[in-house]
Amino acid sequence: MAVDITLLFRASVKTVKTRNKALGVAVGGGVDGSRDELFRRSPRPKGDFSSRAREVISHIGKLRDFLLEHRKDYINAYSHTMSEYGRMTDTERDQIDQDAQIFMRTCSEAIQQLRTEAHKEIHSQQVKEHRTAVLDFIEDYLKRVCKLYSEQRAIRVKRVVDKKRLSKLEPEPNTKTRESTSSEKVSQSPSKDSEENPATEERPEKILAETQPELGTWGDGKGEDELSPEEIQMFEQENQRLIGEMNSLFDEVRQIEGRVVEISRLQEIFTEKVLQQEAEIDSIHQLVVGATENIKEGNEDIREAIKNNAGFRVWILFFLVMCSFSLLFLDWYDS
């Protein structure tokens, strides 16, 4: 267990101080200073870098607070059906989306700017390392906040999709009323509540069952002339067929939607990975360029070496020939 001895330290500071006073030792700056002056913060130039870094952090913090504050309203996509409780319209949500995105972009730009500036000034290695790490921290923080945002956005999108799926099943007149309600919510909301809430919970078969009588009333309104029972039967059969078709279509659509959601999730993962790999690919590219250069140089060197080698061979040959000639000459001279 750690033991806090800060108080002990403060006490020993005091003893040292009184002792120094008693002995009359001059301690730089602290000797004439009162207690306040002693414990006053020594004036230090606040570094430009860290204050700016803190600024960026506080910006990101604001964004986070903003997102968390509106999280509940934002996510609750059904809210406009229950107008008393809902406080946020779709346009407001879009506004939030837009603002958040702009904000994130500015933040990341600020970080980027800080990064370039931090490296531009000439510093010692350690300071540089420190700053890089700090910037990494900030970036990580921004990423976490962004994740918060993207999560709630994903939830929103999903809810909207769910809602649309349900509304598609509803009969025509209802969707019409729904369109009108979205523009003027207040007046119709109670009646809509009663209609939509069961619709969200019940199975599609039931809803279909509801639609049938309405189709029947259409038929009534359309033609005055009586339909024969055969015709009615035929129509009914056709209706059944159509409904079956619709059902299967609907199922397919739902499956496709699920897949699309999954694909989008994958897409997200891939984007992340691709972004991660970007830096790596860059460095690989650099390396490859360097390697190509090296290979070129190597080729040059080899060519040079070959040339030299050839020259050397010629000289050797020449030397040998000269040797043999001189031998011949000596031989001739001797004899």
Partner: peptide, 29 residues
């Protein structure tokens, strides 16, 4: 840490007028 060593640090902190900058002192065991 022993008391005398703590006082050494205190002395140095006083001389550098950096007492407030020593935020915490702990024995960790």
């Amino acid at each position: 840490i022993s008391r005398s060593k703590l006082e050494d640090i205190a002395n140095a902190a006083l001389a550098a007028s950096a007492v407030t900058q020593v935020a915490k002192v702990f024995d960790q065991y």
